[in-house]
């Protein structure tokens, strides 16, 4: 009786693996890190004197985050995405991407979003902000968020890497959105690592984008169900 149940279960699993299109069993991943060589630029403190509400939101100095070199000589805030090779359609997920303005600072500084996915922009500050998205392929927008806890929703209709999001009231506030047609993107973290999951087997062009250091691409081949590795290295300019 027990052996019959196990064999039935195995049969169901085998059937599912063969029958489901784009099955999870066939998907692969690519992971890696983005290293930095050379002398890391000294982080400069951001002057927030232009708005007392911004200054008082921080107890210590806030450092410029345009080039963040982690303690292991890797780079934070690098947008890594599959630039070429993705086939098929990937509908926008229901999950909302959030961009917050807190302490007159964008959180996150770099983020990815799918075409058609909801972007929720909120103002957690007790001061006013404008949110100026300088899109080129997409329709640019500039919205006012004068009230604390105000939320605005936006969508991008076309792929665009990257869309600059800026506050002109507080010119140090800068964020970047990588808009892509599929979910195969990631942003490097405080260890410089990234991981893109669920990628079907195939040949791809992977691109790493950094706001100051430019872009790099590399060709990768992802085997069925395997985890590929792709490392990038940017050097000081």
């Amino acid at each position: 009786m027990k052996s019959f149940t196990v064999s039935k279960l195995m049969l169901v699993v085998a059937f599912a693996a063969v029958a489901l299109p784009g099955s999870v069993f066939a998907d692969s991943s690519v992971a890696g890190s983005v290293s930095f060589t050379g002398e890391a630029p000294a982080a400069k403190p951001v002057k927030m004197n232009a708005d007392p509400a911004c200054k008082s939101a921080h107890s210590g100095p806030v450092m410029d985050n345009s080039v963040v070199v982690n303690s292991n000589n890797t780079l934070k805030n690098v947008f890594v995405y599959v630039k070429e090779g993705v086939t098929g359609e990937y509908p926008a997920p229901a999950e909302v991407v959030k961009l917050d303005q807190k302490g007159c600072w964008y959180e996150p500084h770099v983020f990815g979003i799918q075409v058609g996915q909801q972007l929720e922009i909120s103002n957690s500050d007790a001061t006013l902000h404008n949110v100026n998205a300088k899109a080129k392929a997409n329709r640019p927008f500039n919205i006012a968020q004068p009230v604390q806890n105000m939320k605005s929703k936006k969508k991008f209709s076309k792929p665009e890497v990257m869309v600059s999001v800026k506050c002109n009231v507080h010119p140090w506030m800068q964020s970047y959105a990588g808009v892509v047609e599929h979910p195969f993107f990631a942003v490097t973290d405080a260890t410089g690592a990234f991981s893109i999951e669920g990628l079907p087997a195939g040949d791809y062009v992977l691109e790493a984008w950094h706001e100051e250091l430019g872009t790099q691409t590399q060709n990768i081949t992802v085997a069925e169900g395997a985890a590929a590795t792709a490392d990038f290295s940017f050097s000081a300019q």
Binding site: A50, D51, P52, A53, T127, L128, N130, N132, N142, I143, A144, P146, N168, V169, H170, P171
Partner: peptide
């Protein structure tokens, strides 16, 4: 673009004069 609306500014005649505003 620090003031996104016109002729009003953030819906006001006199918004707080901070930063780019």
């Amino acid at each position: 673009l620090a003031v996104p609306d016109w002729p009003l500014a953030y819906g006001m005649w006199f918004p707080p004069m901070v930063g780019g505003i």
